[in-house]
């Protein structure tokens, strides 16, 4: 009897000890992971606050609506760069979107074949090519034969950059649609292309748009592929066969200049670019939430 009590007491201390040990480990891991999360946020927050701090003073109404001033004059704005970025990204989307969608649909619907895995591999390779190399390629393929820098060339470069991200996000999203939804469409006597474009696409529209918007947000900050394609332009230009201004290249040009006022404007333009990308991300998320309801 006594021995039994002793055993129970021993067991209880052991349980208590081990559960204390468990609690300590639990607490330690929790603290370590929280620290890691905070560390991960530090670059993001510091970039954001630093750009806001340096760039905010440059922002006023005039900055958004006026053209760059000639060298030596104080002031001027980024109006042409804003419009230029919109034109370049719009033109790039026009090229990259159908192209990426096409590849993505092919990969999700006919993705089991050897040819499809070769295509998937190629798309992944394209995604890992540095954007400056894409810029060089477009320079050789478009700028040299046309004998001029142009919005066409810049848009094509951005379009090529969009292809892999749009293709892979489209593939992943369409793959999420269960096979029995496709079969239900086929069983109604509908051809496969109608099932994909009219039924599957409609069901995943929100997610597809999110994928596109994220890749639009990504390419709208690209500088390298525009440097020797769209070049830049200090004047108004809507023409696609002429060099055109863009936010990232304008930031680059101002940042490497020797003038304090241009540095100030470069920070201001950087802040505008960050907010533009942030805005795209937020509206996409919002639209996504609305769409899934």
């Amino acid at each position: 009897m006594k021995q039994k009590d002793y055993r129970i007491a021993l067991l209880n201390t052991w349980i208590e000890k081990s559960s204390q040990r468990r609690k300590v480990i639990n607490w330690g891991v929790y603290v370590a992971l929280s620290l890691a999360a905070i560390l991960a946020l530090i670059p993001l927050i510091s970039v954001f606050s630093f750009v806001t701090f340096r760039g905010f003073s440059a922002l006023d109404w005039d900055f958004f609506i006026s053209l760059p001033k000639p060298v030596g004059e104080i002031g001027g704005g980024i109006a042409n760069a804003l419009v230029g970025t919109a034109i370049l990204v719009g033109f790039g989307t026009l090229i990259g979107l159908p192209w990426g969608f096409g590849i993505g649909i092919y990969l999700s619907e006919y993705g089991a074949s050897k040819r499809a895995s070769a295509i998937r591999f190629t798309v992944d390779l394209l995604a890992s090519i540095p954007s400056i190399v894409i810029g060089l390629f477009v320079y050789a393929a478009v700028v040299v034969p046309m004998k001029r820098f142009s919005a066409y060339a810049g848009g094509i470069a951005l379009g090529i950059l969009m292809v892999p991200t749009v293709a892979r996000s489209t593939e992943e999203i369409l793959k999420l649609v269960p096979i029995h939804i496709r079969e239900a469409g086929l069983a109604l006597g509908l051809p496969r292309w109608k099932v994909i474009l009219r039924i599957i696409f409609r069901g995943s529209l929100g997610a597809l748009i999110t994928g596109v918007m994220l890749s639009v947000a990504r390419v709208s900050g690209e500088t390298a592929p525009l440097l020797f394609t769209a070049l830049s332009n200090r004047f108004w230009s809507h023409r696609l066969d002429q060099p055109i201004a863009s936010l990232p290249v304008q930031i680059y040009n101002y940042a490497i200049s020797p003038y304090d006022d241009w540095h100030r404007q470069a920070w201001g333009a950087a802040l505008v670019l960050i907010f533009f990308v942030l805005f795209l991300n937020l509206t996409t998320r919002w639209a996504m939430k609305k769409g899934t309801k």
């Binding site: 029995h180 939804i181 079969e183 086929l186 509908l190 039924i199 069901g203």
Partner: peptide, 21 residues
């Protein structure tokens, strides 16, 4: 087969109405 399936309909194991329709 597309024409044929219009004459021979099918109902599946899991209810599968088209999403977003």
């Amino acid at each position: 087969p597309v024409e044929l399936r219009r004459q021979i309909g099918m109902v599946f194991q899991k209810p599968n109405p088209f999403p977003a329709f």
